[in-house]
Amino acid sequence: MSAADQVPLQIVAYCCHYCAYAAADLAGVLRLRYPGEPKIVELPCTGRLDVLEVLHAFEHGADGVMVAGCLEGDCHFQVGNLNARRRVAMVKDLLNQIGLEPERIEMFNMSSAMASQFAAAAEEMTARVRTLGPNPLREESVS
């Protein structure tokens, strides 16, 4: 393992209360193993996702952001997850204009019973961000 592989990553995981947050809870109950980098922020619905808040996460050094909402068609508030998907697309476009890789943010969909899918999403996002490397906007590079 190279030194770069050992740099602790900061991934903010915006999780919907009704699905991904419960799926993460279930993953813990089931003792599923997944990377510890994603730090969960519970949202009442991914429709609450705020573009400015996400930008602030990146500005203050987050290496990646994952947004996890209900399966499409199953949003507790009808279309909150579809709104979130469009906002994630908007942030990708903004990151591209700013000069950061748009792959640093991704939207995932799952139900509250899909613990293994949450673990897989955490694995996928951590691996992706590790490939991209730390966010160059970090105040100090962690060695």
């Binding site: 930008l55 990146f58 500005e59 950061l100």
Partner: peptide, 18 residues
């Protein structure tokens, strides 16, 4: 207000990256 915040943040990030 929201768009001004997003633009200001984007400009800060872009200039820092530059």
């Amino acid at each position: 207000e929201k768009e001004a915040g997003i633009l200001a943040t984007s400009l800060r990030m872009a200039s820092k990256l530059n």
